[in-house]
Every structure is written in structure tokens, then in C-alpha cells.
Computed example of a mutant assay.
Amino acid sequence: MSQFDSKFYDFFTHPDSLEPMAALAKKYGYSGIVVTNLKANEGIILPDDFSIYKGVEIQAKPSRVREEIKKHRDSNLISTVRGGEEDINRAAVESEGLDILLQPSEFNNVLAKAASDNSIAIGFNLGLLIRLRGDARVRELKNMRIILKHARKYKLKMILTGDSGSIYDLRSPREMVALSSLFGMTPFEAIDSMSATPESILRRKSPDYIKEGIEII
């Protein structure tokens, strides 16, 4: 059985047109995508065996990040904070209930330990590697290597996303695996980041979920 027989997900998209994105994602081998800040998806025709999940990108000053995360803690929305400087990263990882901290630009042992304590997945934004060039791309690759080092040390769950705004940004799981190898991620880690980790977050959002390892049957 091939590793690419897994169910794959991209957990951070914001398509300008939802139906074409869903159709292409299905063609590429995805089982679902998370659309951030989706207003409504009524009337959208989706491919068979394909799911759209709602997400929220929490955008706030560091002093208000914890409060915003708390608002969504008990909802079924997949919550993401786009990482930045250490103050916003710290506010994010110290807040129970956040699902994903995406591409923090300053990440260290202290933040990684807090993310582990609060079961927060660390996201790698491969869209940056696609869109950036020159020195900016080199900087992001270096940053990703640092994040990966800390994620491995503290056994953090990891997420890969293309941060896709249109069908032209979307990449297949095989392409995502290849891109992630540029900063040292193994194929196993990359596949896990698009399959096992997203599925664990979806399971946690289930109304039957109590805590890890316990579900209502």
C-alpha cells in the first residue's frame, strides 16, 4: 500500500472561487480542505467523497489573541493564528484551544514546549516557498528548518499548507512532499502532516470527543 493512499487535507485555504478549488483539490487527491473565514457554502456543488470544513484565522493584537482564541475554543471551526514575532507566537501557544500556529517567524524551545503542553499543531506555509524568490525565500527556508528542529524535539504535530487563494496556488500532495524536503522534512513527516494530523484535529472537533483517547460511542 502506497503512502499516497492516505486521506489528504489542506487546512488553510481562502479560495476566490470555492467550486473550482474543491474540484481541483479532489483531482489532486485531497479528501477535503479547510476554508478560512467561509461565510456560507450553501448551493456549492462538491465532488463526491470530498469535504469542506470551516476555519477561522484569528487576527488580533498580541494583547487580544488569547481572548479571540477563547471565543472559538468550543466551536467546530478550525482555528489558526498566522505566526509572527515572539509576542504573538507566545500569546498563541499559551492559549488552550488553538488548533494551528502557522509559520512563526521566531520560534524557540520555550514556545515549542508551550505548544506541546496545549496540543497546538505547528503549520508550515509552503505557499511562501512557491511565491517568494531570492533572499526572502532563503530566509523562510532557514526559518522552517528551525521550526522543524523544535517540532521534532517536542514531538509537535505538524501541518503542511499551500495557503492557497486560487486554483493556481494549489499543489498536489506529492508536490507538497517534494517542497517540504527543501527544509529537511522527511516524506513520512510530510504525509503525516497532510493526513494524520488533520484527521486528529477533525476528531478533536467532533461532538463525541472528550479528550485524546476517549470518545462517546
Rank of each mutant, 00 (worst) to 15 (best):
E96K: 15
E86G: 04
E106M: 09
I88P: 01
V110R: 08
V110G: 02
A115E: 00
V93E: 01
L101Y: 06
S105R: 14
K113D: 05
E106V: 15
L98P: 05
L98H: 09
I100N: 01
V93H: 02
G97T: 06
A115R: 03
I100P: 00
D99L: 12
A115I: 04
I88C: 08
F107D: 00
D99A: 11
D87Y: 11
E85M: 14
K113Y: 07
G84P: 04
I88T: 08
L102M: 13
F107K: 06
N89F: 13
I88A: 03
L111Y: 06
A114K: 15
G84K: 04
L98R: 05
G83N: 04
L101W: 06
A92D: 00
P104S: 09
S116K: 10
S95A: 07
R90M: 10
G84D: 02
F107L: 03
F107Y: 13
A114C: 11
D99V: 11
A114R: 15
N108C: 06
Q103V: 08
G84A: 03
F107E: 00
Q103N: 14
E106H: 13
E94A: 07
V93W: 01
A114N: 10
Q103S: 15
D99R: 13
R90T: 07
L102T: 03
E96S: 15
S116D: 04
P104T: 05
L111I: 03
L102K: 04
E85L: 11
R90P: 00
N108I: 03
S95M: 02
E96L: 08
A112L: 11
S95R: 03
S116L: 08
G83R: 10
E106F: 14
A112N: 05
E106N: 10
S105W: 15
A112T: 05
L101S: 04
S95T: 04
A115Q: 01
G97N: 07
E94P: 03
E85G: 12
S116F: 09
A92E: 00
S116C: 08
L101D: 00
E96P: 13
R90C: 08
V110M: 07
E85V: 14
D87T: 14
R90H: 05
S95N: 03
A114Q: 12
E96Q: 15
G83V: 07
S95K: 01
I88K: 13
N109F: 12
I100M: 06
Q103M: 13
K113M: 11
F107I: 02
E86D: 11
V110D: 02
E94H: 11
A92T: 03
L102N: 01
P104G: 12
E94L: 10
E85T: 08
F107S: 01
P104N: 13
G97V: 14
I100E: 00
A114W: 12
S105M: 11
S95Y: 02
G97R: 08
P104R: 11
N109P: 01
N108R: 09
E94D: 05
G84S: 06
L98K: 12
A115S: 02
G97E: 02
L98Y: 08
A115P: 01
G84F: 05
S116W: 04
N109T: 06
E106K: 13
E106P: 05
E86W: 13
F107Q: 03
N89S: 12
N109L: 14
N109M: 12
